[in-house]
Simulated assay, not measured.
Amino acid sequence: MAERRAYPSDLSDARWELVEPVLSAWRTERRRRALNIGRPPEHELREIMNAILYVDRTGVQWRYLPHDFPPWETVYGYFAKWQKDGVFVQLNGLLRELVRQKEGLNAQPSACVIDAQSVKTSASVPAAGQGTDAAKKIVGRKRSIVTDTLGLLLAVLVTAASVQDSDAGRILIEQVAAEHPAVRKTWVDGGYRRHLVEHAAALGIDMEIVQRNPRTRGFTPLPKRWTVERTYGWLMLHRRLARDYETLPARSEAMIHLAMTDLMARRLTGVLARPHKATPTADPGMKQREKTTS
């Protein structure tokens, strides 16, 4: 087959070197466990990943993938398998550690930020998986995320928009305590209830509620919490996340992990999504806070 022209979302050689070991190890393990190995794979892993990134970045439906990619059924099949086997979570964790080390921080975070975002859904999302965020007047789903002080993803939970922030936050804080035992501090907004603060304290995490000044008008970045708001801005660079198009919440979470993997791979290799903008850095005060708690 003739080599196709590259799309802007394609992995560069440098970015492919970052993700290739994880994907190759996955394929090797799958073939080892198979009862009948059969014929060798028809499509290269790099082309499969490029096609998935194309969907994530452009928002195109799977069936509308350009014909110079592998068949959409094959691409979606790999996406579903990688989501189920935790490949996107693994990639996100690996690249996050590399970015943190590049920024002069420990590989494991000691502080984090939690926030939630309600988004509208497409017609492909079952009504049973949706809800109404009464405060924001949005019918759809809610994305609750935990980031470190650089704004890099630690955990994500997609639920119906009707789920209370504190209920999703309880699940996330327990996940953070289990998977990131070095975390000792977290910041949240006023939407999280006092009982969650007590639950976090029982897990050994100091939760601080950062309140918005009621006299402030318009948008004002809140101390400590602005980094997680910026992360939502980064995610919106990927049009597949402009609203929730995924039938299953787990697939929505995979799309978020994929977007962050793409962002971190670009950051590590010096290729930004928008080259005219400088590489965003962490709040110096928050970085110092992490170093003192490590």
Results as ranks from 00 to 15, higher is better:
E3L: 13
A6F: 03
D10F: 14
D13G: 08
W16T: 07
W16N: 07
E20W: 01
P21V: 12
L23T: 01
R27M: 15
R33M: 13
L35Y: 05
I37S: 09
G38R: 06
G38H: 06
G38P: 02
P40G: 06
H43V: 08
E44I: 06
L45A: 14
R46P: 04
L53C: 06
L53A: 06
Y54N: 03
R57F: 11
G59P: 03
Q61H: 00
W62T: 03
R63P: 00
Y64D: 12
Y64M: 11
H67Y: 09
D68W: 12
T74I: 12
T74E: 05
A80I: 09
A80E: 14
W82Q: 08
D85T: 10
F88H: 11
Q90R: 15
N92S: 15
G93W: 05
L95S: 03
L95R: 07
V99T: 08
Q101Y: 03
N106A: 14
A107C: 06
A111K: 00
S118F: 08
V119Y: 01
T121E: 00
A123G: 07
A127I: 11
A127V: 10
A128Y: 02
G131H: 01
T132G: 00
D133S: 08
A134Q: 09
A135K: 06
A135E: 05
K136M: 08
G140Q: 04
K142R: 09
I145Q: 04
I145E: 04
V146K: 00
V146C: 15
T147S: 13
T149M: 15
L152P: 00
L152T: 01
L153Q: 04
L154P: 04
A155F: 02
A155G: 12
V156A: 11
L157F: 07
A160R: 12
A160T: 04
D165A: 05
S166R: 10
D167N: 08
G169N: 07
G169I: 04
I171M: 13
I173F: 03
V176L: 05
A177P: 01
A177D: 02
A177H: 10
A178L: 13
P181W: 05
P181A: 12
T186H: 03
T186K: 02
T186F: 09
G190A: 14
G190P: 01
Y192A: 05
R193G: 01
H195E: 15
V197E: 12
V197Q: 13
V197S: 06
H199N: 09
A200D: 03
A201H: 13
A202H: 13
L203H: 06
I205A: 10
D206K: 13
E208I: 14
N213G: 07
N213T: 10
P214Q: 10
P214W: 09
R215M: 11
R215Q: 12
R215D: 13
G218K: 12
F219Q: 13
F219Y: 15
P223G: 00
P223C: 07
W226H: 10
T227R: 07
R230I: 02
T231S: 15
Y232A: 06
L237S: 15
R240I: 00
R240S: 08
A242E: 11
Y245A: 02
H257K: 08
L258G: 03
L258T: 08
A259R: 04
M264R: 02
L268V: 09
V271P: 01
P275S: 10
H276P: 00
H276T: 12
T281C: 11
A282W: 01
D283C: 14
P284W: 00
P284Y: 06
G285E: 11
R289L: 13
R289D: 13
E290H: 09
E290N: 02
T292K: 14
